[in-house]
């Protein structure tokens, strides 16, 4: 669920590469469509629903899903589908922020560590060990509790807790590439270390880091939803996906309030995971 395990998953030798034919399988296509829809929801929510996410019709509280209200209504009579659609932007952007932090900070640490080696590697390596030693979700909880309960802080916390994973993967990849014959060849051809780093090492190392970033995007959505579920994100009336599940769970008689946003989270993350696997296999 948190970032730490993604590393082990990626490092475990070339998984289902048996069928790595070119061409896009139907599941990958569906995944891309799901992600496209999610992106459109977050950019133009008003195109997808006429209801307001904030103001409800008190006459229709806790209605079951119907043609008018696809996901039913909540205790204030607000359309749950509209709440989900309007909550998308915050859920998606915060996950992007988290991935960006992990990717930029982690890759930089990993790159410096793997390429420079020596004392720098030892120092940064210890730092990464320490980040890794605190269970990812607990670290995120502690950071968000220090920064304050806001979705953006939850995103930062999630990003920081993923730094170690990016750093480790980048370091491993850089070391792998750095030792290869073509990098040594570039020195023999008069290249210097910086040239080798920029033209040979990075282009060969970034790919699996990119796959991790995609995977991590899905994981971040879940971690941020979990933080929101615990109430560590923006308070209502904002409608982050995790928060919707959390506020829905009080109404035992209206399970759709939980299932609808939960389904959206699951579908999104599943699609992202599928795309990440497709990226990993289509080398």
């Amino acid at each position: 669920m948190s970032a730490d395990l993604n590393f082990a998953r990626l490092r475990s030798a070339g998984t289902a590469t048996l069928r790595s034919r070119a061409g896009i399988s139907p599941t990958v296509l569906v995944s891309f469509l799901v992600i496209l829809l999610v992106v459109l929801w977050s950019l133009f929510p008003s195109l997808f629903t006429g209801y307001s996410p904030v103001n409800g019709d008190t006459g229709s509280k806790l209605d079951a899903p119907s043609l008018q209200h696809w996901f039913g209504t909540d205790y204030l009579g607000r359309d749950q589908y509209a709440r989900v659609v309007y909550g998308t932007a915050s859920s998606v952007t915060s996950a992007l922020v988290a991935v960006a932090i992990g990717l930029v900070v982690g890759s930089t640490i990993g790159l410096a560590s793997g390429f420079r080696g020596g004392w720098l590697d030892a120092t940064l390596g210890r730092f990464v060990d320490v980040l890794l030693a605190i269970p990812g979700f607990l670290l995120a909880v502690v950071i968000v509790s220090s920064l304050g309960f806001q979705t953006i802080n939850a995103a930062i916390a999630t990003g920081v807790s993923a730094v170690a994973v990016f750093a480790r993967l980048m370091r491993a990849e850089v070391i792998r590439v750095r030792r290869s014959a073509f990098v040594e060849a570039s020195y023999l051809e008069g290249g210097n270390r910086l040239q080798a780093l920029l033209t040979h090492v990075l282009p060969n190392a970034y790919r699996s880091v990119l796959v991790l970033a995609v995977l991590q995007f899905g994981t971040s959505i879940m971690v941020i939803a979990s933080l929101a579920f615990l109430g560590y994100g923006d308070p209502p009336p904002s409608s982050d996906w995790g928060l919707l599940v959390a506020s829905g769970k009080t109404y035992v008689t209206a399970p759709w309030l939980v299932y609808a946003p939960a389904l959206v989270i699951v579908a999104t993350v599943l699609s992202i995971n599928r795309i990440s696997r497709w990226l990993r296999n289509s080398k």
Partner: peptide, 15 residues
């Protein structure tokens, strides 16, 4: 003074 490596599968940058 140039070198031709043993294994042409690893001595050329695949990218």
């Amino acid at each position: 003074l140039q070198l031709v490596y043993q294994n042409p599968f690893t001595s050329l940058d695949p990218t």
